[in-house]
């Protein structure tokens, strides 16, 4: 990890003079702006948890509202649309549509901090050379954590448009945990997109109600360095039809969700689970089932889980 840090710092200093003399923070700000204003489409490959999904991607902005559409090229055929915080997933083979709401806008491609300068305490942003991605010159931005509570990332940014072309997330051992990669990208002149209407069976999931965590039955003694509360909602799970309280904390790049759910007559789940970059830890406190999950190392998940308490 440290070797990677020094190596990227070396590359950063070597190539800084060749680039556009932008710092890592400036690059991130440009990426964030480009993603909110430009309309573009292409083909994206998602590699996560040993699984590859290739999808046609379309991003448009109309009246300041972002829309993303992903259409899978392989079975199961599905179309996933994000309209600001509303997500719908249409399974074409069964004509079933699943909809859910999310209180925070987050692109399918990359999770970026709202304010790039606020992450300097936890991350080192290094401008590290250029490569060609999808036949386009890309600037590499290394996002290196200063502790072991979060993962390192690399972002390949299109030098012409500042759009993200590739993202990699690395585990503490340096192995790639997740990759998102454009294999082709084209910029659209306008943001209009055709929305195919189909007769589908619609099912709405995850309707939420924003709550105040301070007034809830739970408390979090302290947060890991750099993390802050993003939202606390009361939502329902379709599978169990149970109400779940969901607290999301974030350091800008890494999100951690904490779920509180009545255990009921079930035995409850205790233990760890990992899926690609996501680690989770579940434990039972009295009648409450607590599950903490996020794209951070297991130590961070357990740190948070042990700080959670029931009032």
């Amino acid at each position: 990890m440290r070797f990677l840090l020094f190596y990227l710092l070396f590359i950063s200093s070597t190539f800084a003079s060749e680039g556009q003399n932008l710092t890592g923070s400036q690059w991130l700000r440009n990426v964030s702006d480009a993603m909110k204003t430009l309309s573009y489409h292409g083909t994206v490959v998602f590699m996560k948890n040993g699984q590859i999904d290739t999808m046609k991607y379309q991003h448009s902005v109309e009246k300041g509202i972002e829309t993303e559409r992903l259409i899978s090229l392989n079975t199961p055929l599905r179309e996933i649309t994000r309209n600001s915080g509303e997500i719908s997933c249409l399974y074409k083979e069964t004509s079933q549509k699943v909809e859910s709401d999310h209180p925070v806008d987050r692109s399918f491609i990359v999770n970026l901090p709202l304010h790039a300068e606020q992450i300097s305490e936890q991350y080192l942003l290094a401008v590290a050379g250029q490569e060609m991605i999808a036949m386009r010159p890309a600037q590499i931005i290394a996002i290196l954590p200063k502790d072991n509570l979060r993962y390192a990332r690399k972002l390949w940014v299109d030098t012409a448009t500042s759009l993200p072309l590739k993202v990699e997330v690395y585990g503490l051992d340096g192995n790639v945990l997740e990759q998102v990669l454009f294999t082709e990208l084209a910029i659209d002149d306008n943001g209009t997109s055709s929305q195919a209407q189909q007769n589908v069976l619609s099912q709405h999931l995850h309707e939420f109600k924003v709550e105040t965590f301070g007034n809830s039955a739970y408390q979090l003694e302290s947060l890991p360095a750099g993390f802050e509360k993003i939202f606390f909602i009361r939502t329902s799970m379709q599978q169990s039809n149970k109400q779940v309280d969901h607290l999301l904390i974030s350091d800008g790049f890494s999100n951690i969700s904490i779920y509180f759910e009545a255990k009921g007559n079930n035995k409850g789940i205790e233990g760890q689970r990992s899926l690609g970059p996501v680690n989770s830890y579940s434990r039972v406190m009295g009648d409450v089932q607590i599950t903490v999950m996020g794209e951070v190392p297991m130590e961070t998940i357990q740190l948070v889980a042990n700080k959670v308490d029931v009032r």
Partner: peptide
Amino acid sequence: AHFKEYLQAHDKVWHVNNDTGV
């Protein structure tokens, strides 16, 4: 299935992955 719902509520990018992963 419960874990998958948690994942999707945590980060909507998990809608991208098909069911085999969970």
